[in-house]
């Protein structure tokens, strides 16, 4: 596959333009990035966008957080799902990741599985569940951006590669950057926490990317029937072993069901 000169600045400019069309979502992302933000402040910002507020309420009341039907206030919902989840939901809206027409096939499922996998595995890697979930949810953002930039070429690339390192390598060859790293650049532009950006940038190697690498591998096992397995021990820096893969996959499947309903992806 031939290389394509991808101008990241142009791609990110496009993202900024999209964000300007959703000012409330942009304010929520900005608010949740501030160290001084309280649950009250974030809930107030969220309250200005009924659709986003409803999504957060739905997520907080989902079985995923164990409080089905018990969360009645937006402020409580924010504390239940965590600031990162709120920011991720707002980001999905900002980047039009909830518009299937603009997304590569299977994007929603991939996003859900990565969110469930990273949320479930997070504590093993020193990452909070909700933070892991937010990371997984937004990791495919770069994939959407590549798809918007090079629709036909990217679809071909996806069809020809397995999810995971093989695809990342192909993306790097064609675009000079792989999709999670592009996600990292986008989130960096929106001032997401540095460790989240670092985790995306280090998806190919490095300890910061171990959670995401492992999540991509388990997701691939669930969504791609003929996926060629890669050893979990190596991907996860020995934090996850193959012997527990089965239990992990079961837990992720359960979480996917709960999140699918809650997030409406």
């Amino acid at each position: 596959m031939t290389a394509l000169a991808l101008d990241i600045d142009t791609v990110l400019d496009g993202l900024d333009r999209m964000a300007s069309q959703r000012p409330v979502a942009a304010r929520i992302v900005a608010t949740s990035n501030s160290d001084r933000t309280s649950a009250v402040g974030l809930a107030n910002a969220l309250g200005a966008d009924v659709a986003l507020a409803a999504k957060v309420m739905k997520l907080a009341n989902s079985a995923y957080f164990g409080l089905s039907g018990k969360v009645t206030s937006l402020q409580f919902a924010v504390t239940v799902v965590g600031f990162n989840s709120v920011r991720s939901i707002a980001t999905i809206a900002l980047a039009n990741l909830d518009d299937e027409r603009l997304l590569p096939q299977g994007f929603g499922e991939l996003s859900l599985h990565l969110a469930a996998a990273a949320g479930s595995l997070g504590p093993r890697f020193g990452t909070r569940t909700a933070d892991g979930m937010a990371l997984g949810l937004l990791a495919p953002l770069g994939m959407a951006l590549l798809h918007q930039t090079d629709r036909h070429g990217y679809d071909q690339l996806v069809a020809a590669t397995e999810l995971g390192s093989q695809r990342f390598a192909a993306e790097s060859i064609r675009y000079g950057i792989c999709s999670p790293q592009l996600s990292g650049e986008a989130l960096n532009q929106w001032h997401f926490p540095a460790d989240m950006v670092d985790a995306l940038r280090a998806v190919a190697s490095g300890p910061e990317g171990a959670l995401l690498r492992t999540s991509y591998e388990l997701t691939a096992r669930l969504v791609e029937p003929h996926h060629k397995k890669r050893a979990l021990e190596r991907l996860s820096d020995q934090r996850i072993t193959e012997t527990e893969a089965s239990a992990r996959l079961t837990a992720i499947r359960t979480d996917v069901r709960e999140l699918r309903s809650a997030l409406g992806l």
């Binding site: 950057i177 190919a204 490095g206």
Partner: peptide, 13 residues
């Protein structure tokens, strides 16, 4: 980081 080209760290704007 691995897989990130150095020129990607240099944006014009």
């Amino acid at each position: 980081p691995d897989g990130v080209r150095i020129d990607h760290l240099f944006r014009r704007e």
